[in-house]
Design a protein around this nucleic acid. Structure first.
Length: 253
DNA sequence: ATGGCGGCTCGCAGCCGA
């Protein structure tokens, strides 16, 4: 079974890339973030025509998440239960017996900002909910844009990024808390080339110079990690004309 | 040290992302 995650930075603009991704990788579930469109504008007909079903939770301009799958998604739930948040950042569904949790964790802007406080509170709410969700669904995958680079090797210049948003100690601690719940970072289960990243700034030729961060992750529950076969980042989609600034991450379980 | 790119909007400038 193949699962994938991709922050598309506008589904309207990236729809051709998404269709190409579905055709090339044929994932059993594809989690998308930053749809930047309302549910009424979700391109369901085009995705159905590609052989995929979709569940989604969108809003105008910002955020928005979706799960695409060839088979129907069951027990769909949007948002973090108990967290009153108008921002559409979480969607969970069961696909072929696997609990697929698609997240777009807040960016945080800068450690001094209110958005950073919102991010840390949001992460705490996510972790509390995940603990329950893991108890209910032993086969669980948490896929998405975490906006956290967990280790030095996930950052092109860890000294320059030390203490900055996406790489501050409280954010890294929250990531570790997720690992402590029993989740495994599937990417690090396997040998990877050095300087592997999932996001590069559009500016300064970030991708060509490989000035990136690894902030998109697929964490697996123990039961899924046991049988995980591979995890990779598909750089081809970041190298395209008019790409998303994120590359897709793919896991085989 | 700064800004840079790209996507969005009751657009032509400003917000947001990371």
């Amino acid at each position: 079974m193949k699962l994938a995650t991709w922050n598309v930075n506008s589904l309207k603009v990236r729809l051709p890339h998404v269709l190409e991704f579905l055709d090339r990788h044929k994932p059993d579930a594809l989690c998308l973030q930053e749809l930047k469109l309302e549910d009424a504008n979700f391109p369901l007909a085009v995705i159905n025509a590609a052989g995929y079903q979709a569940v989604y939770s969108g809003q105008k301009t910002y955020n928005g998440v979706a799960i695409l799958s060839p088979t129907a998604a069951a027990d769909v739930s949007a948002g973090i239960p108990g967290l009153d948040d108008p921002q559409k950042r979480v969607l969970a569904a069961t696909v072929n017996g696997v609990r697929v949790v698609c997240v777009y964790i807040p960016n945080g802007e800068a450690v001094e900002s209110d958005k950073y406080k919102y991010k840390l509170g949001w992460l705490q709410a996510l972790i509390l909910w995940l603990k329950q969700e893991l108890a209910a669904y032993p086969k669980l995958a948490l896929l998405g844009d975490y906006n956290v680079a967990p280790e030095d090797r996930d950052v092109y210049d860890p000294k320059a990024w030390a203490g900055k948003v996406l790489f501050s100690d409280p954010e890294k601690a929250a990531f570790k808390d997720m690992i402590t719940l029993g989740l495994t970072d599937s990417f690090r289960m396997f040998d990877q080339v050095e300087k592997s990243y999932s996001w590069w700034d559009y500016r300064m030729n970030g991708f060509k110079r490989n000035l990136g961060l690894r902030i998109d992750h697929i964490l697996l529950s123990a039961e899924l990690a046991q049988t995980c076969k591979s995890c990779s980042i598909d750089l081809d989609f970041r190298a395209k004309e008019r790409p998303s600034d994120h590359a897709p991450v793919i896991v085989e379980i």
